[in-house]
Amino acid sequence: MHNLYIPVIAILAAFAIIFGGQAISDSRVDDEIKSLISKQLGVDGEIELQAMKEVQKGYGVCGQYQVADQGQRFVPFYYSKVNERVTLDADAERYRRHCGS
């Protein structure tokens, strides 16, 4: 019975490492997107993200943002993980190509 504990603990530790690392990575991407949007808009307010989905087999992210203290509606964006650039214009070619219409 004691020999069963070691594999179970090893499996649980592996899951924690894999899924914990993924959560940290996703959080880093969210923070990077917020920072880039804030810089591009020239605002200091908190940026809220919603409706985020990965595109291009995980190389890009489509979603919507709004500046929290301005009360505006949510606006679409596209973020490329490859070159770490954000496109805020829904009419831009990069947004239309990767996020659809």
Rank of each mutant, 00 (worst) to 15 (best):
E48H: 09
M52C: 07
V43E: 12
I18Q: 07
S80W: 02
I11L: 09
V82T: 12
I47C: 00
K53D: 05
A14H: 00
T87M: 04
K57Q: 12
D91G: 14
P76G: 11
R28D: 14
A51D: 14
K57W: 09
L41C: 14
Y79P: 04
P76S: 06
A10N: 02
G42V: 12
A23Q: 09
S25Q: 10
Y59W: 00
A10K: 05
Y78E: 12
Y59M: 03
S25Y: 09
P76M: 11
G58F: 02
Q64T: 14
G60L: 01
Q72A: 15
D44L: 10
A10Q: 06
V86D: 02
A16D: 00
D69V: 13
V67N: 10
E48L: 14
V55M: 08
V82S: 15
I37F: 03
R85S: 04
A13G: 01
R28K: 14
L49S: 05
G71E: 08
I17A: 08
V75G: 06
Y79F: 13
R85W: 00
V55Q: 09
F15H: 08
G42S: 05
G42T: 10
L12N: 06
N83Q: 07
Q70L: 15
D44H: 09
Y59P: 00
D91A: 15
L41V: 13
V82M: 11
G42W: 09
D44T: 13
I9R: 05
D89G: 11
S38L: 02
D30M: 04
V29R: 14
P76N: 10
I18N: 05
K81P: 09
Y65E: 02
S27N: 10
V82H: 06
Q66M: 09
K53H: 11
S38G: 15
A23P: 05
D30I: 07
I37P: 05
I47E: 04
G21S: 06
A68W: 08
D44N: 15
L36Q: 13
S25F: 07
Y59C: 00
E48Q: 09
Q72Y: 13
L12A: 10
D89H: 14
A16L: 10
I33L: 03
C62R: 06
A16Q: 01
K39M: 12
K53A: 12
K34T: 02
F19L: 02
T87D: 11
I18S: 02
R85F: 00
G45F: 09
Q72S: 15
S27Q: 07
V75T: 15
S35F: 01
Q66L: 14
Y78Q: 03
D91Q: 15
L41Y: 13
D31L: 13
A10W: 02
N83A: 08
I17Y: 04
D69F: 12
V43P: 07
G42P: 11
D89R: 06
V43F: 09
D26S: 13
N83V: 11
R73Q: 15
I18A: 05
I11E: 01
V43N: 06
C62E: 01
T87I: 09
Q40N: 12
V82A: 11
F77E: 12
G60D: 00
L41N: 06
E46S: 10
S38A: 15
Q64F: 13
K81Q: 14
A14S: 01
D89F: 08
G63R: 01
D30R: 04
I24R: 02
L41P: 08
Q22F: 04
